[in-house]
Design a protein around this nucleic acid. Sequence first.
DNA 1: AGTATCTTGCATAGTGGTCA
DNA 2: TGACCACTATGCAAGATACT
Length: 225
Amino acid sequence: IVAYWKDRTKKREAFPFKIDGVVVSVNNNVAFKKLGVVGKSPRGIRAFKFSPKEATTIIEDIKLQVGRTGAVTPVAVLKPVEIDGVTISRATLHNIDEIKKLGVKIKDTVSVVRAGDVIPAVSRVFPELRTGRERKFEMPETCPSCGTKLIKPKGEVILRCPNPKCFARRKKYFYHFISKGGFDIVGLGPRIIDRLIDEGLVSDPADLFNLKGRNFTPFRKRNGN
DNA sequence: AGTATCTTGCATAGTGGTCA
DNA sequence: TGACCACTATGCAAGATACT
């Protein structure tokens, strides 16, 4: 298997389509079935991925995002760099522990990969390329959106904004409400929600059902239903 | 009719929390 | 400890709608 994988790695560029690895499958239906399925992954199949393609760039800044549950996530704002025909400009840093582990500072030169050839990720830092102008990143004590003091429950790595009325959280809550996993409101996405909130037309998802006469129809029909 | 804008869906990984 | 689900993240293509 390893020999085959190495061979494919060499011939990767020769294919008329993009590949990110090879898949090995048990070639016996009885054995395959016996192995069963874990989650979405059948045990009888294994993927052997190639090393992701890398590019070097600079971390311009580290910004914070507040999720629906209040999770505060640091995101690296990168000097745009191209990997495999795609421009990478942002990459999640997950949490402060990840930042410490990588040893990332703002303005650092870093190596960026596309995990699974899709998701941008900072893979390593080049401390030897520092100029002295790099800034250490510290997590704030208060929510970047509402200013509430952030909490870090015991045993947890992630900082959270505990304020249920936090504007950023509220927005994400809205997104979730209208999303496929929620009410699945077709044609109503984050952009529209932003507009509705900015224009003061809604402050709670329930307000969506009282927009009559406001010259705004967020609901579209899906296949006539 | 042509252009602009917007939404959706997909791809995958890391992490956290819960449960057996 | 492993399984499993939820959450969060980015970028692109495709398709639909809105606007000029």
